[in-house]
């Protein structure tokens, strides 16, 4: 149920509903407690977090006062614009050759996202190479190979337990020879608080820099939309290690809203670039703040 249907439902309860509630809502220029609570629960239930929710509602109150907003429609569009602004980033265009490294904690959907990206770039007419840098998880390279086959792109891999950095090195040399202009690098899932594993990631990052200077470098973190406030810590620590350029927000086809990205946008200034919306190879879309905010406010 969307926010306004909820409000409507609440309003119906009183006899002289609309005028009474609206009066109460905007007397003194502030939101009534009830209305405020309603908005708050919508934001909180989307994983926006207590602090960010507070600051969004504070700005809303300010704007309502300043602009003498009186109708619920106006409140709605004001809230929409506040939230939209938080997520609206200028993202640089891709240049080729392009190397995209995909990192993230375990089980967020890194391998699947790579399969989808490979397919997307190929459809755009690029030659794509996948580097199977997850040499840790059982059968990770097998899983990635199936995705590479589906997308119809080449994959460079080694045996399980191999040095991930060496896989990446091989992939870069191989792409240079064969003329692939997009390299997608899979990495093993790692919890962001494990020092050793983050060091390994830094090493892979250095290897790419050193061996492919002319390529555009992009590092994406994959976030599971189901994740709560811990996502902030994930982005923060990955960002510290390898400079994250953007987020791939996965599993948005469930009931989770992924609202934690508001806090991340504020604290880490990392934008969402793509969203994953299903299990098939085409289920990846460019992130639209417009649609995203809509889905939170209107349910």
């Amino acid at each position: 149920m969307g926010i306004f249907s909820k409000i409507k439902a609440a309003i119906k309860k009183t006899a002289d509903a609309i005028s009474y509630k609206l009066n109460k809502l905007f007397t003194g220029g502030v939101l009534s407690d009830e209305f405020y609570d309603e908005l708050e629960s919508i934001l909180l239930s989307s994983d926006i977090g207590a602090e960010t929710t507070d600051s969004i509602l504070e700005s809303l109150k300010e704007q309502i006062d300043k602009k003498h907003i009186r109708t619920t429609d106006e409140v709605k569009s004001e809230l929409h614009s506040i939230m939209f602004d938080l997520l609206d980033f200028e993202v640089p265009e891709y240049e080729y050759p392009l190397v995209i490294m995909i990192a993230g904690v375990n089980g967020v959907g890194k391998t699947t996202s790579i399969g989808k990206l490979a397919n997307m770039f190929k459809k755009q007419g690029h030659k794509v190479l996948i580097a199977a840098g997850d040499t840790f998880r059982a059968a990770a390279a097998d899983q990635l190979t199936i995705w590479a086959d589906r997308a119809g792109v080449r994959i460079v891999k080694q045996h399980e337990g191999a040095d991930a950095a060496s896989v990446v090195f091989d992939a870069i040399q191989s792409a240079k020879t064969k003329g692939e202009d997009v390299i997608l690098i899979d990495t093993a899932g790692r919890l962001h608080n494990k020092v050793n594993l983050m060091e390994e990631l830094k090493k892979i990052n250095r290897i790419i820099d050193k061996n492919f200077e002319q390529a555009m470098r992009v590092n994406y973190i994959v976030l599971d939309a189901t994740t709560g406030q811990n996502a902030i810590s994930q982005v923060s620590l990955f960002n510290e290690a390898i400079d994250i350029d953007g987020i791939i927000l996965t599993k948005l086809d469930g009931t989770a809203k992924g609202g934690v990205v508001f806090a991340i946008a504020g604290e880490e200034e990392v934008p969402v670039i793509y969203v994953g919306t299903g299990e098939s190879i085409d289920d990846i879309e460019r992130f639209s703040p417009e649609i995203f905010v809509d889905s939170i406010i209107n349910g």
Binding site: L44, S45, S46, D47, V105, N106, G107, L191, D224, T226, T227, G228, Q229, N230, A231, G254, T255, A256, K257, V260
Partner: peptide, 28 residues
Amino acid sequence: DAMTGQDAVTVATSFNEKLDISGVILTK
């Protein structure tokens, strides 16, 4: 996943309603 946010409630409720689960394992 122990990192799950607000949606944990929806997920757990659905699985429990459909399957009458006997317990939960928290990972990560």
